[in-house]
Amino acid sequence: MLINWFPGHMAKAGRLIEENLKVIDVAIELVDARIPVSSANPMIAALLGDKPSVVVLNKADLADPKLLDIWKSYYRERGRAVIAVSSKDGRGVKSLVALVRGMAAPKLERWRARGLGNRSVRTIILGIPNVGKSTLINRLAGRNAAKTADKPGETKGKQWVHLADNLDLLDTPGVLWPKLENQLSASRLAATGAISDTVFDMEEIVTALVDELSQRYGEALKKRFNLTNLGDTPQDTIRAIGQKRGAVVAGGKLDFEKTYKLILKDYREGRIGAVTLDWPEDFTTDEENTGADDD
């Protein structure tokens, strides 16, 4: 199954970002720490060009700590500033503010040297849907400055948010790319909730997720669902999970839809443990930007 999802408002969001980047001092590129490559939109990298920017590995509390360190090194080796944060509990947010201020300092100094006075640092948060932009903005602002929602793509237009101590932030809608040709990344995006549940096959995505978890986080999977052993196949494991959770219908048949949903919910909420799906060995150089279409 090829997952493609590019609503009209996503194309509009790309144009909106391009139009507003010229007034931005430092851009924040937000990715999901559990799938840092899969959730990095190559359109954003192209739009940023040489603009000072920092990669923020959000939802770090849900990611494997060992892989988190590996991915931070990965970005640094490529000349990118990078920081891990957890918007939910605020971990790393103060450090992010300090980093953005430091990166903007040279530009603001040139601004003052030309006699243009002082002004706030202007930043922008860019990322695909459901990587936690609104939650991070609210954490930075210390109030409900941006609406949060479970549905990907909830932010509809731009809005400036004034943060404390001369820091202004431009919020924008999440941006997905036209075609997800790397189906490994597409599957992981669907599993984390970046793609609406209505546009993919639940059985296929959960089967792929359980397969990956069985290979790399088998003990965590067994512990969460109280399994003695994993099945010989992902579907066997799914059946065992459904039976343990009592997801059955009349006649004792397994309710697969209910089982798929409960597995997905537990994964998304971190109940299976600190799990990272993207591992560096999953991607070659040509695949690092998730196989976005060039058309």
Rank of each mutant, 00 (worst) to 15 (best):
A33R: 11
D69H: 13
A191H: 10
L209E: 01
I3W: 00
A113H: 11
W5R: 13
I3M: 05
R101S: 12
I195H: 07
P234Q: 05
Y75A: 10
K51S: 11
A250H: 08
T155A: 05
E203L: 04
D69C: 06
E281H: 14
K133N: 03
R139N: 09
L116Y: 12
I137F: 07
P42E: 10
I137L: 11
W71E: 05
D236E: 14
A46R: 15
A274H: 13
D32V: 09
I128L: 03
M103S: 06
D201Y: 12
P42W: 10
G117M: 06
G90Y: 12
R101A: 01
P65E: 03
S185P: 03
T276S: 15
V97Q: 13
G115V: 02
I83S: 06
E269T: 14
L189A: 07
V56S: 06
S214M: 13
I28G: 01
Y217N: 07
V131E: 07
F283Q: 02
D236G: 04
E257F: 05
A13M: 04
P178G: 03
E281Q: 14
T259Y: 01
W177D: 05
G218Q: 06
D64I: 08
A191S: 15
V37S: 15
L48T: 07
D211L: 12
A274N: 13
I83W: 01
S87K: 10
L176Y: 10
N144D: 14
G115H: 11
L277S: 08
D69S: 15
A220W: 01
K59C: 12
L57C: 09
A164S: 14
P7A: 02
L170Y: 05
K51G: 09
E181V: 09
I128D: 04
D255G: 02
D171H: 05
W279M: 13
L254S: 04
K59Q: 14
T259P: 08
G14K: 10
D293M: 07
V100N: 10
A141K: 00
I137D: 07
D236W: 00
V54M: 11
P152F: 07
G132V: 02
K261N: 11
G242W: 08
A274Q: 15
K156E: 10
K94D: 15
L189V: 09
V54A: 13
S120Q: 08
P178F: 04
D64P: 05
G142C: 08
A63H: 03
P36G: 11
K151C: 00
L57A: 09
G8I: 06
A98V: 03
K244P: 00
N4D: 14
V85K: 03
D32C: 09
V55W: 11
F256Q: 04
D294S: 10
W71G: 03
I205T: 09
I263T: 02
L169K: 08
R224W: 00
K261E: 13
V210A: 06
G132K: 01
V275D: 02
R271C: 01
R224Q: 09
M1Q: 09
L116V: 01
A13D: 07
G252P: 06
K151N: 08
S214P: 06
I28S: 02
K147E: 14
A145C: 04
M103N: 03
M10Y: 10
F283S: 01
R216S: 12
